[in-house]
Each structure stands twice: as structure tokens, then as C-alpha cells.
Amino acid sequence: MAVQRQSRTIKSVFRLFVIVGLLVFAHAAYSAAQHRLYLRITEREFTGLPADIVVQIILAFLVICCGLVNIAGDFREIKASKELENKSWETFGNQPSFYTFTHRGRVLFSTVPELDDEADQED
């Protein structure tokens, strides 16, 4: 239980990361738009974004990445054979398309003694 609760709080922290990151992102976008507007009003050539906006974008990107990676769930093993490791021949070698019915099953588990006659009439 304690572990579960702990993981839940950790998850909410990372969710906060994502939200904050998105807000910073939005702020950076707004700032960039404002900057273009300012340039247009003062009739200057656009050469590039100011450094503080660029830094803001990079920071927001990193924070969002960090948050998303941690809340998206567990990673899968990179080894392709990992998922097959728990399989056994019992399930892997089973071929339902090729089942035949002439085996011990009908003798062991059947509840109706005279199968064949009854089934004929029922059709």
C-alpha cells in the first residue's frame, strides 16, 4: 500500500511537470508573437527570437519530456525475446484449428451415454 501511495504521489509530481511545462511553452509562444508584433510596429527586420524566449522553449521542452516519460507507464524490455520467455509449449504449441475430437475427452467427460442416436434426431 505504502509503495502504491508513494508511486501515486510521484506520478502527480510528474503530472505537475507536464502542466508547468505546457504553460511555459504557451508563454514562450505568446512572447514570440508579441516580439513579432513589436518588430512590425517599429518596422525592423526579423532576424531571430531573443535568447530568453529560446531558452524558455528549450527548458519547457525538457520539462515536458521528463514528465511525460515518467507518467506514460512502464517501459518494455528492449530484448525481443523477453515477452516469449514466459510462454511454454503448452500454449505456444496449441493449434485450435486442427483439433480433432476422437480422443479420450469424449470418454472421460461425457455425460450422455448414447451420443450418436440423440444427435441425429436433433438436427
Binding site: G105, T111, L115
Partner: peptide, 14 residues
């Protein structure tokens, strides 16, 4: 259905 046939349980399969 398939399991019932395997176990000879025709009425269940039906």
C-alpha cells in the same frame, strides 16, 4: 462450443 465437443458434451455444445 469447441471445449464441449472436446469433452463429449454434445448438449452443451448444442
Amino acid at each position: 462450443f469447441l471445449a464441449a465437443l472436446e469433452c463429449g458434451r454434445l448438449e452443451l455444445a448444442q
